[in-house]
Amino acid sequence: MAKITDKIKEYTRPGYYEKFDYHWTMSIDLDRCTGCGACVVACQAENNLPIVGEKRFKERREMKWLRIERYWEGEYPNLKLKFLPMLCQQCDQAPCETPCPVAATYHNQDGLNTQIYNRCIGTRTCAVYCPYEVRYFNWFTYTWDEPLEQQLNPDVTVREKGVMEKCTFCVQRIRMAKDKAKDDNRRRVKDGEVTPACVQSCASEAMQFGDLNDPNSKVSKMTKNKRAYHVLEELNTKPSVVYLQKVEKHD
């Protein structure tokens, strides 16, 4: 009986599973970001993102799980250029998860906001609810011209028309690292064992990736930095991506 009441308490409490096994987190140091776009290309290659072409790009139907937002500040000649790499924030209180009628997007035990392509029926509600606009919809079935299909990543599926997709924090790499840890009889993945494609390709090491539950990981230290902030923090989505403010010279 006590067991049942405990279960009921557990299930009726908001924030169920707020203690994750892992809490994968990314930190992006905007002071180091040069806006080179290597991460965008790496993501494209790793995750089998289709190249939509100029026409579709103009229609704002590009597929970029990671994009670099470019903001200009001030008036010429005092013009400042700022970059903001924007990818799925893997929010702990994700606005996009609740509206899916078929539970195609949910929170897994790694604290990741997952998207299950097989299950998606394409109501696009998640994308409407997402304040970061990092969900991308397959408006068409995209194909790869020969010989480009040869470079598709076998670890990642290709998606058909009518399916929503987004950054997964390279879940296939996380999966592999976890399998390796299991093979080596380790309980947990070591810090630095998982690197998503974008982090791996960042020339200036602006991006760090790791487990926030591990207090000694690089990314945990980064989040304690004074410059750390979340984008659109006021919406209380509790993102897992931490940005480090750009250091500016004030005259």
Partner: peptide
């Protein structure tokens, strides 16, 4: 339906009233 396959969404409770 919520308990058959537990899929937490958006930090809400599994049995959300």
């Amino acid at each position: 339906c919520a308990l058959v396959f537990i899929l937490p969404t958006g930090g809400r409770a599994i049995i959300a009233f």
